[in-house]
Amino acid sequence: MSNELMQALVELEKERGIPKEALIDAIRTALNTAYKKNYGTSQNVSVELNEITGEFQVYGQKRVVEEVKDKFQDILLEEALELDPDAKTDDIINIEITPSNFGRIAAQTAKQVVVQKLREAERSMIFEEFSEREGEVVTGVIQRIESKIVIINLGRTEGLMLPSDQIATERYEVGQRVKGYIYEVKNSSKGPSVFVSRSHPNFLKRLFELEVPEIYEGLVEIKSIAREAGARSKISVHSLDDKIDSVGACVGPRGIRVQNIVTELNGEKIDIIKYSKDPEKFIANALSPSKVVWVAVDEEEKKAQVVVPDYQLSLAIGKEGQNARLAAKLTGWKIDIKSESQMEEEQDQDGESS
């Protein structure tokens, strides 16, 4: 050991923020274990570091006795007085027992501890950095794909995109640049795990915030999102400024803003809905692009009866019920859709039965 070790510890404290004392304590603990492992002693030992020279000394603890019963645990009073003139029977004194070849073991052990502490500090810094970035959109390069999990290089760490976070209609390849939404960061013994999603509703929300200045500035508010990733989404928006058209702001000049988002999502259809406090209006808007004749709501049951023109029924319901399903999710209401002729038939039957 030499002063080089102490200088290295000082530099680590400055550059990486790892306290020098924490490193020294960790090295001491590791060296105690290393000494017992290499020299197989049952004696109580402690390893001390000279913080000026960087040298380590091993001290064994012995009890001062009149008669030695265990040479590893006991020391005669006469010998103890040579080391410490104030020594008395039953005192515990420290005796240097540093082996001649201990320097090599100490150097190797210290190096291992420093490397381990560096890894821990790096992991901690990465965890803190990405924990603060939860809820952000990040861009990375696909590094590899293992068991259907897409691993993305995010610079200082990797992002994991699980199958449930992927868009089913997309194909991912190594080397491809992708955007994703950080929805969770977990810490573990192996380091931080950063979970990234392209299917999360908040990914769509963040894309609108990035693309539409009025949303970013808080002039237009996103009230709710209903998404079936890769197929279709509905997003309801509300303007906090009467002079701003919330839907128009999101669509953008010649539709450029929403088109940029559709392109990022590889063609996912997006319906931008004007929010209303009036549930009847909101539900009618949510069923866009279908036209609605009228809406009747049951506030207690949170149910809505909707009537649409006959030729709009299939559009209102959507392929495999998708439009109606997304509208219900967007508004939080159970929606029952009927055509005008279906409604007339029901009314006629009710009239006959009465």
Rank of each mutant, 00 (worst) to 15 (best):
M1R: 10
V10Y: 15
E11S: 14
L12R: 05
R16I: 11
I18Q: 08
I18L: 13
T33M: 07
A34D: 10
Y35K: 01
K36E: 05
K36F: 08
K37M: 05
V45R: 09
E48F: 10
F56Q: 03
F56N: 03
R63D: 06
V68Y: 00
D70N: 09
F72V: 11
I75S: 09
L76T: 11
L81P: 05
E82R: 14
D91V: 05
I92Q: 12
P99A: 01
R104I: 01
A106V: 04
A106T: 04
T109A: 15
A110S: 15
L118F: 15
E120H: 12
I126L: 09
E132A: 10
R133S: 00
E136D: 05
E146Q: 12
S147A: 06
K148G: 06
I152T: 08
E158I: 02
L160R: 03
M161N: 07
D165R: 06
A168N: 10
E173A: 13
S197K: 08
P201H: 01
F203E: 00
F208W: 00
V212S: 10
I215R: 11
R227G: 14
A229N: 10
L240A: 07
V247I: 05
V258E: 04
V262H: 10
V262M: 13
E264Y: 02
G267D: 03
G267H: 09
I273P: 02
K274I: 15
S288A: 06
S288I: 02
S290T: 00
V293K: 10
W294G: 13
W294E: 08
E299T: 08
E301A: 15
V308Q: 02
D310N: 09
Y311V: 10
L313V: 01
L313F: 06
G321Q: 07
A324L: 05
A328H: 08
E344Q: 08
Q347L: 06
Q349W: 06
S354N: 04
